[in-house]
């Protein structure tokens, strides 16, 4: 098998969509926050919390969907904390976000050690199984990749459509976007900027947490330390790459995942001639390059990172 053949195998595209799924959830989450004007650097920690709480719920005997719900709620909790500190209190979104990531990550590791003091190898759960969509899953290459995935992957794609629809077609979405562009105008309409931003950060953080939960409940079947491994930061880059639009961000996530899946297979093809670290670096390097390419013409939300105080100009 050579480097080009990889792209024609069905298993490659199955892997692409699987790798893209958590990124799609978390990217949509970050996009919702940023469109409302709040940068959420808590993403890496919130994904960790989601990965852990979702997995723990199932490990303790809960249903898989209950695990997803618990993960989302944990995300909401940390999202509300980030929102409280950055929206009404107007603290630096950079510093607070990093603080949320440090807090969420360390709290997760602490809880893991308290809950499972004696484990040496991470305990496994029974994760989500692929659910073939009747009829569609039989199509060559596209079928297995898009229509024979776990329910959470389908949910990720549905989420993109829902986010795009809400942002462009509903009053809530218009308020959310306006809050990220011109909060004073929204306040003049009698809508609370604080409430809209808090809601956006809470919902966005829930999406991030479900993205984390995907890793422990669908991609793998156990929780281990440092499993998020920078995916949250990549998602922040993906939001910029996608120009804060759900569809473009989805495209970015799939492209990124394709690249990630490709480098893993390319490692096997080159057979160790190039150190494996070079391949592992490529996705991060690619993220930076993508940012450089789009940064000049990026039209970011005008009020991003600008705290809003009523009556202040």
């Amino acid at each position: 098998m050579d480097a080009i053949d990889i792209l024609l195998t069905g298993s490659f595209w199955v892997a692409v969509i699987r790798i893209a799924s958590p990124l799609i959830f978390a990217t949509m989450g970050e996009l919702i926050c940023e469109r409302a004007g709040v940068l959420n650097l808590g993403i890496e920690g919130i994904m960790t919390v989601g990965a852990f709480t979702g997995w723990l719920t199932v490990y303790l005997g809960g249903d898989l969907w209950l695990g997803v719900a618990i993960a989302a709620l944990a995300g909401v909790a940390f999202g509300l904390l980030h929102g409280l500190l950055t929206v009404p209190l107007g603290l630096s979104q950079h510093v607070t976000g990093i603080g949320i990531t440090l807090l969420a990550t360390s709290l997760t590791y602490f809880t893991y050690r308290v809950a499972l003091p004696e484990v040496t190898s991470p305990p496994k759960i029974e994760p989500f199984q692929p659910f073939p969509l009747p009829g569609l899953s039989g199509i060559p290459i596209v079928g297995p990749a898009l229509f024979n995935q776990t329910p959470l992957t389908y949910l990720a794609f549905v989420l993109v459509a829902v986010v795009a629809w809400i942002l462009t077609r509903t009053p809530v979405g218009i308020a959310l976007r306006a809050v990220g562009e011109n909060p004073a105008a929204v306040e003049a309409q009698g809508i609370s900027v604080t409430a809209v931003r808090m809601g956006a950060v809470a919902v966005g953080s829930a999406c991030m947490a479900v993205g984390g939960a995907f890793l422990t409940m669908s991609a793998f079947n156990s929780f281990f330390f440092e499993m998020i491994n920078g995916r949250g930061w990549v998602c922040i880059a993906l939001v910029v790459f996608g120009s804060w639009r759900p569809g473009k961000a989805l495209l970015g996530a799939v492209l990124f995942a394709a690249f990630d899946a490709y480098q893993v297979r390319l490692q096997q093809v080159t057979g160790g001639a190039i150190p494996y670290q070079v391949f592992l670096m490529l996705p991060y390097v690619l993220s930076i390059l993508a940012l450089i390419v789009v940064a000049r013409r990026a039209s970011y939300p005008k009020a991003l990172m600008a705290p809003y105080q009523k009556g202040e100009r």
């Binding site: 650097l41 950079h94 491994n229 920078g230 930061w233 990549v234 922040i236 880059a237 910029v240 150190p275 670290q277 070079v278 592992l280 670096m281 991060y284 390097v285 993220s287 930076i288 940012l291 450089i292 940064a295 000049r296 990026a298």
Partner: peptide
């Protein structure tokens, strides 16, 4: 990148952490 291209330095410095750690790992195994 921040001053010339307007690329947010938070993301680039965060991503560089992972790149450099892999680079160190490469050096230490090579």
């Amino acid at each position: 990148l921040k001053t010339r291209f307007g690329v947010d330095e938070v993301v680039t410095t965060l991503l560089l952490n992972f790149i450099v750690l892999l680079f160190v790992s490469l050096l230490l195994e090579g």
